[in-house]
Deep mutational scan, measured.
Amino acid sequence: MATVKFKYKGEEKEVDISKIKKVWRVGKMISFTYDEGGGKTGRGAVSEKDAPKELLQMLEKQ
């Protein structure tokens, strides 16, 4: 499965596409929420050019 690499609050993070719950576009950025486990929801964003094609496909399906 594909992963998304991004920075959040200065920390490098990587999340599996299957854990992503919601995806939306903000200008040229793709924002998303994902399941961190333990009932927590994380947030992240990547630029449109750095987003994996699976993430862009999720955006188109909504």
Rank of each mutant, 00 (worst) to 15 (best):
K61V: 06
V26I: 04
W24R: 03
D35L: 10
R43M: 03
A51M: 03
G42Y: 08
I30K: 00
T33N: 15
G37M: 13
G27S: 04
G27W: 02
G44S: 02
M58N: 03
E14M: 04
G39M: 07
L55G: 00
T3F: 13
R43E: 15
T41M: 11
V46W: 01
K61H: 14
I30P: 00
V26N: 12
M1E: 12
W24A: 06
G44L: 02
A2D: 10
G10N: 08
P52G: 07
K49Q: 10
P52M: 05
V46Y: 01
Q57N: 12
I17R: 03
G27L: 03
E14T: 05
T3R: 02
S47R: 06
E14S: 09
G39H: 08
S31Y: 03
E48A: 07
V15H: 01
Y34T: 01
K22Q: 09
E48S: 04
K40E: 13
V15W: 00
D16T: 07
Q57F: 12
T3E: 02
T33C: 14
G42S: 12
Q62V: 03
S47L: 04
G38A: 08
T3K: 05
V46T: 13
L55R: 00
A51I: 05
A51R: 02
K19C: 13
K22V: 08
K28P: 15
T41D: 14
D50K: 13
E12T: 08
P52R: 04
E48P: 13
K28L: 13
K5R: 03
D16Y: 12
M58C: 06
K22E: 15
V15F: 01
R43D: 15
K5V: 09
K40G: 09
M58G: 02
G10L: 02
K40C: 12
S47I: 14
G37N: 10
G27V: 02
E60P: 03
E60Y: 03
R25V: 06
E12L: 09
G10I: 01
K22Y: 09
G42Q: 09
S31V: 04
A45I: 10
D50H: 03
V4Y: 00
K49D: 15
Q57T: 05
F32Q: 00
G38R: 07
P52A: 07
D16M: 09
K9I: 02
G39I: 13
W24C: 14
F6N: 01
D35A: 06
K22D: 14
K28Q: 10
E48K: 08
V46D: 00
A51T: 12
T33Y: 08
V26F: 02
G38V: 11
I17C: 06
E11D: 04
F32A: 03
G27H: 04
K13W: 03
K19P: 01
S47C: 09
E12F: 11
I20W: 01
L55A: 02
E11W: 05
K5L: 08
D35W: 12
K19G: 04
I30V: 09
K49N: 12
G42N: 09
K28D: 11
S31H: 14
E36C: 08
V23S: 07
K13R: 06
E11A: 12
T41C: 15
E48N: 04
S18R: 12
A51P: 03
I20E: 00
P52C: 13
T3Q: 05
T33P: 00
D50V: 07
T3C: 07
G37E: 12
L56P: 01
R43F: 04
K40I: 15
I30E: 00
E14D: 04
K61N: 12
K40M: 15
P52H: 04
T3N: 04
T41N: 14
G10Q: 03
G27F: 01
S18H: 10
W24N: 07
Y34A: 01
D50E: 09
V4A: 01
Y8W: 06
K40D: 10
M29H: 08
M1D: 11
T3G: 04
A2C: 13
G38S: 07
Y34V: 02
G42V: 11
K28Y: 09
G27Y: 09
K49T: 11
E54G: 10
L55N: 00
V23Y: 03
I17V: 07
A51Q: 03
E60I: 07
K7P: 09
I30D: 00
G39E: 05
R43H: 07
Q57Y: 07
G37S: 09
V46L: 04
A2E: 14
T41W: 04
V46P: 00
T41S: 12
K5P: 01
E11V: 08
T3L: 12
L55K: 00
S47K: 06
L59W: 04
G37R: 07
G39R: 05
D50M: 08
A51E: 03
L59T: 08
S47V: 05
M1Y: 12
Y8L: 04
G42I: 08
M1H: 10
W24I: 05
G42C: 11
Q62E: 10
F6W: 09
L59Q: 02
K61G: 12
M58K: 03
K28I: 07
Q62C: 12
S18K: 02
V15S: 02
D16L: 13
V4K: 00
A2L: 10
T3S: 09
L59F: 02
S47N: 15
A51G: 12
S31L: 08
V23E: 01
A51L: 07
A2H: 14
G44K: 01
M1F: 08
S18F: 13
A2I: 07
K28V: 03
W24D: 15
S47E: 13
R25K: 05
L56A: 07
E14Q: 08
K40W: 13
I30W: 01
G37L: 13
E11M: 04
M58T: 03
D16K: 07
K13Q: 10
G44M: 02
F6C: 02
E48C: 13
V46A: 09
K22A: 12
M58S: 03
S18V: 12
I17D: 01
G39V: 11
I30C: 04
A51S: 10
T33E: 11
K19S: 12
L55V: 08
A2M: 15
K40N: 15
S47A: 11
G39N: 08
E48M: 04
K61D: 12
V23T: 06
T33L: 10
M1A: 08
I30G: 00
A2P: 10
D50F: 07
M58V: 08
Y34I: 02
E14H: 08
M58A: 04
E60V: 09
G10Y: 02
E12M: 12
G39S: 10
F6M: 01
E14G: 02
K40S: 13
I17L: 12
R43A: 10
K19V: 10
S47P: 14
Q57G: 06
D50I: 07
D16N: 11
